[in-house]
Write a protein that binds this DNA or RNA. Structure first.
Lengths: 342, 342
DNA sequence: CGATAGAATGTAAACGTTTGCAAATATGAC
DNA sequence: GTCATATTTGCAAACGTTTACATTCTATCG
């Protein structure tokens, strides 16, 4: 009686049988290990093509304790900031032979924690994390040093892990100084919320520039709201309506800046004639002919790439004996001058 | 002499040892299988928490031949069309307990094929594919019916697989009829290239609307170029310069439409006064106050969700005995009227 | 021709689970 | 207390690889 396997996948053993060798030899041949006769190797390769053999990465992962897989946790791929970062990460990962799991936390803490656990179960070799805020004790404890992590875009204060972020202080400084050099003496700051991960640095840069050029910090010209376009619109309209507004505004991010542009125009004033505006991030639409927003560019793609590179280095390092090198990288922001400021 | 495992992960066996049961029992307890005494289960759960046990999904995948993982292959997450689709897919997958691998082909054929093989090796349970064009013999053969696939956004002609796409003919029809009803008699079409996956349907809808309302199809008003903004700009500027241009234009997609908007304005004419414009896709910036492009909305998020749902159904089905149900879904496009057309 | 080094191949254990089947134990009816 | 039955547990194989070690082959040298 002949035994028929129903819909089983073709394995290394099947090849071995046809080739009249042990399956260890097949494994060696397929992985280009030395110590297998050229004739044997050729035959095995031929057979494996012929039989449509597809290596089983799961089985391999089990014994090698390496999955060649990374996790990417971001708040929301739909937010125009992240696709480029993700792209840089994917490109870098692919070059290094890694695949990536995409996880959207939707800015929810539980999801962040959930995904960390999930990725740990899937035995990813490393994680790139764009955290939703500073509260990471749950996060950091949840991975408990078992698996390498690199923060990207934002990093919690005094973390022990590597990260790749933008130099927010410098960015804020550049934006503000640009407005000063354009001749403005009253410069406002419009931000999202106090616990935003980016506000502190950008505000600090703003203050620093004012101080350097001997301008006063006017409390009334620093206004916060939420992280959305509407906030910018609302704040600037109110200021203008109250007839006490700065002639230039540095916004914490491009979305707020866009709201400001609209608010100024809706109030019957012009940009940059009556109010100059500078944003932060340089998300894609900032450069559109209809928008032309002066802003601080974040090298998003590069940020992603550097993050994977750092992570892969970490992974490679943790395999060897030498201790892992922590890297905390601040990328340089660049001022991009468009029509909204000059 | 005591044997010390160095940095081995804690496994089901370790728990079994501490709990004084066989590891089969631990497995059953952790998976909430019936047939384990409540006291035993409680003890095991407690121990596993205490020891920071993390189930190994790789090992599980090997025996269950199920990874709870899907592959998502798209051209470029950086293209504003895809993030929403991807988000819909991720949300749906997560709800179903699946994770997704993100793969960007960068519009390159070899990468598409490469990723298909890779995903097969990783033993994903299914694949969602936004193909770069119609040439899919390589693709379809490469997976050879081994693993369920659902096309999203675009599907090759006469494929045997399931897909979720937009009804391009209807979309083209709606766009064109809208312009006709706004009173226009000369309506042009600006498209990308002939082998674009979407052009045929949209052009057909355009023709259909013209015919229905008794308008002639003027060859000279149908112009093609490439899939980028500049094309729209260039084409419309030339037409206007030659003093022979339609009073309304339906563009194959929003990027072209945006170029057209700019071209019209750069020529000293106004939108929609001199030339009305309708796009297709409704990518995020189309709705911005500065743009206000009338366009045909594709339900991108829903498209993603329907695609995963279809895929998961397929996966579930292929496990059971009943034959798999192929679904070929055309989503309804919606006209979104903004300032560029009325 | 025999010894020997090196290359090629084979053997078997290991990776961490799940699961069919057998064994043991508990439960209940009489 | 005995038996029958149901529940709980254990045993061992299986999933498809990689790899340390043992064995066999081949070629080279004296």
């Amino acid at each position: 009686m002949i035994k028929i396997k129903s819909t089983t996948e073709v394995t290394i053993k099947d090849i071995a049988r046809k080739a009249n060798v042990s399956y260890a030899t097949v494994s060696r041949a397929l992985n280009n290990k030395r110590g297998v006769r050229e004739a044997t190797r050729a035959k095995i390769l031929e057979l494996s093509a012929e039989m449509f053999y597809t290596p089983n990465a799961i089985a391999r992962g089990l014994v090698k304790k390496q999955t060649l897989t990374l996790g990417l946790i971001i708040p929301d791929i739909t937010n125009p900031f992240y696709p480029e970062v993700a792209r840089g990460i994917e490109d870098g990962a692919t070059e290094g032979g890694f695949s990536i799991f995409l996880c959207n936390t939707n800015w929810e803490r539980e999801k962040e924690v959930h995904y960390l656990r999930l990725l740990a179960e899937k035995r990813v070799d490393g994680i790139i994390l764009a955290p939703i805020d500073n509260e990471v004790e749950a996060v950091e404890s949840s991975l408990a040093g078992k698996i390498p992590v690199v923060y990207v875009s934002n990093a919690p204060h005094r973390t022990q892990h590597s990260f790749v972020v933008i130099d927010n202080v410098l960015g804020g400084f550049l934006a503000t100084e640009h407005l000063i050099q354009a001749g403005h003496r009253t410069i406002g700051f419009v931000g999202s919320t106090e616990d935003s991960l980016t506000i502190a640095g950008r505000l600090k840069g703003y203050h620093r520039a004012l101080k350097k050029h001997g301008l006063p910090v006017e409390k009334k010209y620093t206004q916060l709201g939420e992280f959305k376009q509407e906030t910018g619109y609302r704040i600037v309209r109110r200021m203008i309506a109250e007839r006490d507004y700065p002639r230039a505004i540095f916004a914490e991010n491009d979305l707020l800046a866009l709201g400001i542009l609209q608010g100024v125009k809706a109030s019957g004033l012009s940009v940059p004639g009556d109010v100059a505006v500078v944003g932060f991030d340089d998300i894609p639409f900032a450069g559109f002919p209809e928008v032309q927003l002066t802003t601080i560019n974040q090298p998003k793609y590069e940020m992603g790439r550097r993050a994977v590179e750092t992570l892969l280095e970490q992974i490679g390092g943790s395999a060897g004996a030498q201790s892992v090198q922590i890297r905390q990288i601040y990328l340089k922001p660049k001022l991009v001058v468009r029509k909204s400021s000059v």
